[in-house]
Design a protein around this nucleic acid. Structure first.
Lengths: 351, 351
DNA sequence: AGGTACTGTGGGAGCGCTCCCACCGGTGAT
DNA sequence: ATCACCGGTGGGAGCGCTCCCACAGTACCT
């Protein structure tokens, strides 16, 4: 009869109230069971769970969000046009790690692109409406206003790749400096000495750190730093190609290249081939990211592996902590909030 | 003073009520302005808009969802592992079209992968909670239970690529049959006659239709259909490679291949190269999708272009109509709900 | 015996909207 | 004048939850 009344009344989805009636308990108790509170006796819990199952009850997320003031979803914000998102394996790996970390959770992930001004305006609106409990920021440029907006709206955020050495947001990064050193030291250990570097976009802090690593590895090896061996790229294939052409023109005797990304290395490889250079006989090549591109290049590309999936997972960990701790910002320490993960050199036949 | 009271009371985000007080009107009126109802005088509207701007009011989506019983978001469901999503340009193009169509709207797009059983269970839960107003289904297999689940939950859905000739869901498709005919007729017009076909996954209706197109084009040309010239692929590079090997073994005299996707064609190309066949001199090759792969292949690949972005846009149109019309399903006609878009052959040097 | 404490429970209040009905005054038909 | 009607408006009710306070019951001290 209770069941009949419950089902009959609405014809639509059952509510908490109906489950409560069915189980012969109060609303509060059902809510406790649904939310896994320990303060419910086993008997009652079982009765409620039975009622939930019989009625096919599923909580209404809108009601929950309104009452509890949380959405149970977080956004992965990509401040790039979609095209780059698909082109660079970095993002798909990141998404994989994030997805994995989230699959144990009730949290829903939203993927938001903010490449164009229009998309950014939309995003701002979205955030202002507090449609997410937290934000994962990937690939942010130094002058991006997004972090400030987030701070102003008091939305917890974690950034991958700090914007500078003085990053205030919690961040997860790989050791760009160390990775670059590994790459250069590897090339030097192979007997190369005219090692060039094609950088990434220099408004990305990680790209700068790779340059630092390159410089110091060269200098520590007693080779000094020839600024002419450094040429700016932008993480794209085309940028790598162009930079390599410039470098070859300037220093035809280059015997090794450290490129700031695999995609960049792929462009460099093309330029090297066009110039009749053999890889690795004439010029050894090392990339960064250890993406699918590296494995499938001809010859297979030596590359610095960043634990990107792992980074994604760590970012989620940090973010969920931020979201859970709703303590005032000031009372929190900056202790465990900046993490740096080690890189690994994957040696293949290009070097 | 009103402003002071409004801001002072909560310290948090302003509410409709506070905007109303500030503008000296009732709640209902503010709601009307926010939602663009025409039943508001210009003077009042201006006053409300001013108050909204001054207070920086942004509607609370949770409250709105609860009261209005809609979420203003739709999901793009990809029943594939993420890897395939990134590997196949089909999805990124689709996403682009969908995103473009949605950018004029208040609707938010969610991207949901349902590759693993675990992800599917999550998705089912998500849909049961009615967290989206509608669903876009991409790349659905014939035996997928998702459409039934959606029907049962009464969630509007649009499918890209009908599951069969008797598809009941609204759908947007490209003319697979016609596209295949174009491809084959093109090869025949180039003087080829031993034309092989590497199919897609045959549990995808579109792949079947391409086979139909191939068969009828061959038969209409008076060449008859040699079943030995048809070999099943699965839309992957590896599948294309394998199928091509089989075909070459069976019919070494093949002089043309129509592959069911560019990725498949890429695999076929590799097998042809390995067998010492030149493209197009010995064997002409035509793909399907006109993706970036086709443009960058060597030699550039002739391919059938599907207007994927356009399909994405049309799907959104259909879906938004479904969502708006909340009429009982029975009272609706099936009239304009199945659309088929024309394909176009892009001729390049592989044929 | 009377506290005191704690577990388990019920249910009121309230989250911020939308929906809808009631109402006001002005207009045109009768 | 009378009435119907309509554009414009205010505000009550209610959406389905969570939060929290109140309170019954049991157990364990003094």
């Amino acid at each position: 009869m209770a069941s009949h009344a419950a089902r009959g009344r609405s014809g639509g989805r059952p509510t908490l109230e109906e489950v409560a009636a069915r189980a012969g308990v109060g609303r509060g108790t059902v809510s406790r069971v649904i939310n896994g509170s320990p303060r419910v006796s086993d008997v009652t819990r079982a009765a409620v769970e039975a009622a939930v199952a019989e009625l096919g009850y599923v909580p209404n997320p809108a009601a929950r969000a309104l009452a509890a003031n949380r959405t149970d979803s977080i956004a992965l914000v990509v401040p790039e046009p979609e095209a780059r998102f698909f082109a660079e394996p970095y993002f798909s790996d990141m998404l994989k790690g994030v997805g994995a970390a989230l699959s144990d959770t009730e949290m829903q992930l939203l993927l938001i692109f903010a490449g164009s001004d229009r998309e950014r305006a939309r995003l701002a609106q979205y955030l202002a409406a507090h449609r997410v409990d937290g934000v994962l920021l990937v690939s942010v440029h130094a002058d991006d206003p997004l972090p400030d907006l987030l701070a102003q709206l008091e939305i917890p955020a974690v950034i991958s790749g700090p914007r500078s050495a003085a990053e205030t947001l919690p961040s997860v990064d790989s050791d760009n400096y160390g990775g670059a050193r590994q790459a250069v030291e590897h090339l030097l250990s192979r007997g190369r000495s005219r090692v060039a570097h094609i950088t990434g976009r220099l408004d990305v802090y990680g790209a700068q750190r790779r340059v630092d690593g390159y410089r110091e590895a060269m200098s520590d090896a007693g080779l000094g730093v020839d600024e002419g061996l450094i040429e700016a790229g932008d993480f794209t294939e085309e940028g790598g190609h162009r930079a390599m052409e410039v470098l070859l023109e300037r220093h035809p005797d280059i015997d090794a290249v450290f490129a700031a990304s695999d995609v960049t290395a792929s462009g460099a490889r093309r330029a090297l081939r066009e110039a009749g250079r053999r890889i690795p006989e004439d010029v050894a090549l090392v990339g960064y990211d250890d993406s699918a591109i590296a494995r499938h290049m001809e010859p297979p590309l030596t590359s610095v592996r960043q634990p990107i999936e792992e980074m994604g997972r760590r970012m989620i960990d940090l973010l969920l902590t931020e979201v859970a701790d709703r303590r005032p910002l000031a009372s929190r320490g900056l202790d465990r909030r900046q993490m740096v993960l080690a890189t690994e050199l994957v040696s293949r036949s290009s070097s």
